[in-house]
């Protein structure tokens, strides 16, 4: 189980190419059977794919931290997008364990995310709160 000693652990996923076809499929999935909104733009929450998941899966696979996926719930999420990301951009993503708290018999894991484009500009900052029951 995560504990205080894991705060500060950092995971990196460098050189993620923002895939245009992938972003279009993502936009279509958001729309469902409705018309896709702003089809030529990468949806901001595509950050889940280019920023969060590649680093989170490393964290979840970190045996020393020992996150139990069976009891894992995504509690809260925030995103800030200082600059747009476009298809073809190459993004470096990081995740850092920001906090570990035990409350009401559950563990609350706070994770800070950041992603930069090839020109160094920040395209996404995020904070995830994961609850492990």
């Amino acid at each position: 189980m995560p504990d205080q000693s894991h705060v500060g652990r950092r995971y990196e996923a460098n050189g993620q190419v923002v895939d245009g076809a992938g972003a279009r499929a993502f936009a279509q999935a958001i729309a469902g059977s409705d018309e896709v909104y702003a089809a030529s733009v990468v949806p901001p929450t595509y950050a889940a794919v280019y920023c969060l998941f590649p680093t989170l899966y490393q964290l979840f696979g970190d045996a020393e931290v020992g996150v139990s996926l069976a009891g894992l719930v995504h509690g809260e999420q925030s995103f800030t997008w200082p600059n747009p990301v476009r298809s073809g951009d190459v993004v470096d993503a990081t995740a850092v364990i920001a906090s570990v708290e035990d409350k009401r018999g559950m563990t609350f894991l706070g994770i800070d995310h950041e992603a930069h484009r090839q020109d160094g500009e920040t395209v996404c900052r995020g904070h995830s709160l994961m609850i492990i029951r």
């Binding site: 733009v41 901001p44 929450t45 719930v73 995103f79 800030t80 997008w81």
Partner: peptide, 11 residues
């Protein structure tokens, strides 16, 4: 979408 700077929520 370019007008949206931040979004956060609780699930």
């Amino acid at each position: 979408y370019e007008r949206v700077g931040e979004v956060s929520c609780r699930f």
